[in-house]
Amino acid sequence: MKIFPVLHRGSLLALALGLETAALWLILDHSLYERNLMTAGFCHFTASAIAGYIFPRIIVPDRYESQPATGDFFFALVFYLPVLGLMGLVLGIPLIAGWSSKRSQNSDSSVRVNKIRDLPSEVAATHGHPVNSHGLHDLYQSRDPSKRLQAVYATLKLEDRDAIPLLRMALGDATDDIRLLAYALLDRKEYRLSKRIEQAKQNLEKQEDSGKKQLYRQIANDYWELAHLGLVQGEAKNYVLGMAYKYIELGLVYSPEDSGLLFQYAQILLRLGRYQEALQEFKKAEMLGIEFICLQTYYAEIAFYTRRYYEVKQLMTAIELPAVYPLLTTAARFWQKKF
């Protein structure tokens, strides 16, 4: 499709409109009917080809690679609906441009990136009571054991991903009561997930094929949470990731085109250090609808592990600062430096 590489989009659009107008004029002229018909046909075909080239680029944002099927669609639309097809598309451009820019704003990386990666947020709120996890970390630094104990209790108000790092830190506390409370809280979180897994595995045996898909997804997700939240460590963590891998593959047998499953599958592969496979699965998930912006940091991570540092820089530079998650801001700043 790269037959108009040097012309500006506006010029190409004008050219297409001109060709379509010329074709219409030739058809309406009865003096040299047969020759006009051939010329009009050629003009209409060229206008359709230009439309097939230009409209995917206007509608699909720059960061996405346009697919050949999209071009074919616009070509067919203009070709089989002479005049009306092209006119409709041209009139629709302002609407499309407005929608596209709004969509772009909504998926701004600096706003959403922490949710994408499931990173600890600055302020976690539950039950309507905001609890600042960084404030709790400060409270936990107190020399007064009762304040440290208070900080550990307050993790009950945090979501797991925010609470667990503090609880793991408290496992090494010099005061027994604090250490034991942290241990008990971590143990309960792990118990809850393990129990769910056990229950779901029992249900699998009773379930018909149609219901199995959801159970596979749930089991894989719970195994993933155990590893991802840091509730298991070392070799046990690898084992748990292996189990998440096994169950998500079983789930994919039933839904090979489920973008959510593929996204999680790719994350597991990434944690297992299988970078190329992870990249392929992330790409598949993207093709099936997951936005590029959601995958940006994963691509950067894979590029980093596979030592493609220039690519890491490109991807990290696209993150607007300050990012919501402070550690990501630090990382992004590092990669945005000019060396």
Partner: peptide, 19 residues
């Protein structure tokens, strides 16, 4: 420690509410 454990065990599914 016993009281803490009991508290956690009894409210394992709704710790936030228990607090």
């Amino acid at each position: 420690v016993d009281l803490q454990s009991l508290f956690i065990k009894e409210h394992r599914d709704s710790l936030g509410d228990a607090l």
